[in-house]
Design a protein around this nucleic acid. Structure first.
Length: 468
RNA sequence: GGCGACGUACCCAAGUGGCCCAAGGGGGAGGUCUGCAAAACCUCUAUUCAGCGGUUCGAAUCCGCUCGUCGCCUCCA
């Protein structure tokens, strides 16, 4: 099988065929940096991460672009509120975003363009739209996209423009649009708002134009995949597609991918309702970053996913299970001969993993294949039928699959002080001084090192998370 | 009001016509191993897939209706 993806626009699941096999181009709608992103936002970023990782695992070179929206109403409001500039606010939360992303082991995008650094590209796009008759100016210097000029409008969201409820709260009164459904490409200058002097006049960009300008700047007028949360389908991506195609005449995106919302307490996680959890807070509560990553990627991206203490606990246990085999395989002394059946076990796991992900990135069966492998490996370790070389090969396969999952523990050496405690504990146990060895074991656990005894002596692994 | 998704064990969650008397993870019960603990392994925990009809040799999977949950139509990942 090959990778198949379900495209929002066509509604079809199709084999993935890159426009250019030597450079798969992926664009993901990134954060608007007016505050810390919450874990719901990260679900969508990590789903894109999973896609990019899997494309690379499958051998495709990928260029991944994720924008940073660093100018918009909320940032302006936030800057006003705490008396700093919008650049400061944007910088603060961009830094925070990148730190959280790193915590969650998100692949660093190849390009992280900032909107404010691409104003000229936006202006050029708007000029093209004006020239082609798809946009018009209003008295205050704003420029709008004329939906009536674009018959394809509504195709992505599968909405009929005529049936759309006209937003009562839209800025219809603030800006004099020809049609309330028309959307802003450019907002004329206003007091208290940062103005840019551009070819289309002074003002600031509308939201949608940012993504069109930045994606096409780095990926061309047509590219392979565009990702985002379902809430972006309309109006953001609908508008983006309309303005991009109206400006260039080229089909904008080959495959649109949208992930479902993260649910917490039965409803979607959203800043507007305050129903949120943040990466920093969750980690501060003692959840390991890898467990959090697991909790956010372990379900198919188009399915609603519930988030909460239960899901985090299950995720933490699952990750520990991975850690346990990983550690067991690492410290596996054996004089057994090679296990003739191991290759088949490894191959079955790899096939199950790939078959799952090939099916529109369905991680559930992929993870099932991994855990089936884990059990097979544990059985063999317990039965001592693996050779040391076998253990190494099994580890290599796990590590290879982990290029996609990114859940395995870091391979770092133990700090000297802790290493000394581990040795002391082994020595005490060797002398059958149970009280002392138990004390050292407890102390090590307290410092994040779990020590376990096996027939071949003790072994240790990091635990990361506290347990309550 | 329009559009759409979903409803599988105690919880999360695969499976979308026969390999399903239904993966995987978590939780629970019992057992093995062990100085103890932990990990691991073994057994058990859905004759059943929201409910009711229908199509079919055959349905969790297709069709219809009913009930329920969630989302989009407005800033939003």
């Amino acid at each position: 099988m090959t990778l198949h993806l379900l495209d929002t626009l066509s509604g079809e699941t199709r084999p993935f065929e890159p426009l250019d096999p030597t450079n798969v181009r992926v664009y993901s709608c990134g954060p608007t940096v007016y505050g810390p992103a919450h874990v719901g936002n990260f679900r969508s970023f990590l789903f894109a991460d999973l896609l990019v990782r899997y494309l690379r695992y499958r051998g495709f070179p990928v260029t991944w672009v994720m924008n940073i929206t660093d100018v918009d109403d909320k940032i302006i409001r936030g800057a006003l509120a705490d008396g700093t500039g919008i650049a400061e606010v944007a910088e603060r939360y961009t830094t925070r975003f990148l730190a959280d992303a790193a915590t969650l082991r998100m692949t660093v995008p190849d390009v992280l363009p900032r909107a404010t650094a691409h104003i000229d590209e936006m202006a050029a796009l708007i000029e093209a739209l004006l020239a082609r008759g798809h946009a018009y100016r209003t008295d205050d210097g704003s420029i709008f996209f004329r939906i009536a000029s674009w018959p394809a409008y509504g195709r992505l969201a599968h909405l009929d423009p005529a049936e759309m409820r006209i937003g009562e709260r839209v800025e219809a009164d603030e800006y004099a649009k020809d049609d309330v459904r028309d959307f802003a490409l450019w907002k004329g200058p206003r007091d208290g708002e940062p103005p840019w002097e551009t070819a289309v006049g002074p003002g600031r960009p509308g939201w949608h134009i940012e993504c069109s300008a930045m994606s096409m700047r780095y990926l061309g007028t047509s590219f392979d995949v565009h990702t985002g949360g379902v809430d972006l389908v309309f109006p953001h991506h609908e508008d983006e597609m309309a303005q991009s195609e109206a400006a260039t005449g080229d089909p904008f995106v080959r495959t649109w991918l949208h992930c479902a919302h993260l649910q917490m307490g039965g409803e979607k996680m959203a800043k507007s309702t305050g129903n949120i959890a943040r990466v920093g807070d969750v980690v501060a509560e003692g959840v390991s970053p890898r467990a959090l990553r697991y909790a956010l990627i372990a379900a198919h991206y188009r399915m609603g996913l519930s988030f909460g203490p239960d899901s985090l606990h299950a995720a933490a246990s699952a990750v520990e299970r991975l850690d346990a085999v990983w550690a067991a395989l690492g410290g596996y002394p054996s004089d057994a001969a090679d296990d003739a059946a191991l290759d088949a076990v490894l191959e079955t796991a790899r096939r199950g993993f790939e078959d799952g992900l090939d099916d529109d990135l369905n991680v559930s069966p992929a993870l099932a294949a991994v855990f089936d492998l884990v059990r097979e490996l544990n059985r063999r370790i317990a039965a001592r039928i693996l050779s040391t070389a076998d253990a190494g090969r099994a580890r290599d396969v796990l590590a290879d699959l982990d290029r996609v999952l990114a859940l395995l523990p870091d391979e770092d050496a133990l700090e000297p002080e802790l290493a000394a405690l581990v040795e002391a504990r082994a020595a005490a146990r060797g002398r059958r001084e149970w009280a002392e060895s138990d004390r050292l074991r407890a102390e090590l656990l307290d410092r994040g090192i779990a020590v376990e005894d096996t027939r071949d002596g003790q072994r240790w692994r990091r635990t990361e998370a506290r347990h309550g």
